[in-house]
Design a protein around this nucleic acid. Structure first.
Lengths: 112, 112
DNA sequence: CACCCAAGTTCTGATTTGGAACTTAGGGCA
DNA sequence: TGCCCTAAGTTCCAAATCAGAACTTGGGTG
């Protein structure tokens, strides 16, 4: 079964997972909620390869969760910002955060 | 970067994702909240291969999110039930459900 | 004995990922 | 003009993961 085969599943959880059901996608969304918006920020912050960042941003834009906006014209440069649909995803990340804080205490410091 | 390299990340969302940050793991947890508990139920319901189910159940048990309980002695048979730690993950799945219901209407019926 | 069940494990080929280098379209400055 | 810098990707190949099907284990049933 492929990733996107879940997009018409009867279950809304499964449909949601067909879009955001992977580590890197969710980390990118976390970064968006932390105010990050640029390609290199996502790459540095998540630790994913540029290849993955590129792919995931494409999916998120297609899904209408992020919007690609030019912030510079001559060198064309884009940033990615949450749409309203994307903003409304915050309860899920908050739930992840709360669960992680309670059940997965950090053992040693790492850079984010 | 590997899966489990996130388990000591400063961010609780990242640490949570190191355990449950994939499609199949989250679908298995959804099934648990729907009352399912057996290997074949997970395989049938999620559409993941038996290989994946086996691997994910192992991780979830190791992480203390599920507990393996024998429900038959002679043929030894096990089922998987949510621990309290697992139960407390429900807000995240509820958030996924709500978001999916609102933003990803189903287009055609599929079997779950 | 032949066939069925549940819970896995094993196998092989296909897909995805990781990591590093490269590209594109300029800007700064000597 | 030449050289290095930035930001946003793309490309390459080897390594890891996955899909799908078959097989295994330890019984039970007719």
């Amino acid at each position: 079964m492929k990733w996107t085969d879940l997009d018409d599943n009867w279950c809304p959880v499964a449909r949601t997972l067909s879009l955001v059901g992977d580590r890197w996608t969710l980390l990118i969304l976390r970064d968006c909620f932390l105010g990050k918006s640029r390609f290199d920020q996502f790459a540095d912050s998540t630790g994913a390869t540029r290849h993955i960042i590129s792919d995931r941003l494409k999916r998120l834009v297609e899904a209408g969760i992020l919007e690609k906006q030019a912030y510079s014209e001559r060198p064309k440069r884009y940033e990615y910002v949450l749409t309203e649909k994307g903003q409304e995803f915050s309860p899920a990340l908050v739930a992840f955060k709360d669960w992680g804080k309670k059940h997965l205490p950090v053992r040693r410091a790492t850079q984010g």
